[in-house]
Computed example of a mutant assay.
Amino acid sequence: MAVFQLQRTVPLPLDEAWRRLTTWSRHGEVVPLTRVTVRTPPPTGVGTRVVARTGFGPLAFDDPMDVTVWQPPRDDTPGVCRLEKRGRVVMGWAEIEVRRGPGGRALVTWREDIRVRFLPPVCDALLARAGRGVFGRAVNELLRRG
């Protein structure tokens, strides 16, 4: 189990930070070699199915995820989204939290537990470091782009 967390504070309203992070198709624009599709009709909520396809040609795999918690931010109530990864290759969960931070800015916390089938537990630290790097850059880009 490779668990990691990252935080970002951005000068955005809570609802805008939430929108930028939970418009799932945008993730495919910022995660290398990945295309993201939503397999259920809008709007996003509990039960939404998101599939990230990563790789190229025969070396690609699907990372299907189901939204199991969906609480958009309201006033000063934090927004929380939890995705359960249900793939044959990638398993675990991801949580996105958006709350009011210092100076009225949005404070984003991304937590993830990622497991990759066939990787032994000795690889967990490396996998967590790689996840923190890839998702850290992705979160930065998602929050930067309007």
Rank of each mutant, 00 (worst) to 15 (best):
Q5R: 15
V122G: 12
E95R: 11
T37D: 14
A128W: 02
P73A: 04
V98C: 06
T44E: 11
V10S: 04
R82Q: 10
V89C: 10
T48I: 04
E84R: 15
R144Q: 14
G47F: 04
A2F: 02
R19S: 07
K85W: 00
T34I: 10
L107N: 04
E84K: 12
A17Q: 04
P32Y: 05
N140E: 15
T23S: 12
G79R: 00
R129Q: 13
R49Q: 15
G28K: 05
L33A: 13
R53A: 05
A52K: 03
F135T: 01
E112G: 04
D15Q: 09
M91C: 12
R19G: 00
V134E: 00
T40M: 04
F118S: 10
V46Y: 01
R8G: 01
M1F: 10
W24S: 07
A125R: 15
W110A: 01
W110M: 03
R100A: 06
L107W: 05
M1K: 11
P121C: 09
Q71K: 14
P43Y: 10
G87Q: 03
A106S: 14
G103W: 09
L6A: 11
C81L: 13
T109P: 02
C123D: 09
I114M: 13
V31F: 08
L33R: 12
R117Q: 09
R19T: 08
Q71P: 06
F118V: 11
T9L: 12
F118Q: 08
G146L: 06
T34E: 02
V116T: 06
Q5D: 09
R132D: 09
D113A: 13
D76Q: 15
L12H: 07
R20E: 00
V116P: 00
V89P: 01
G104R: 10
R115T: 14
A106D: 00
G103D: 07
P102C: 08
R35T: 11
A52T: 02
C81D: 02
D15I: 07
R145L: 10
M1Q: 11
R39Q: 15
G146Q: 10
T77K: 12
V31I: 15
R132T: 12
P73S: 06
I96V: 14
L142F: 05
A60L: 06
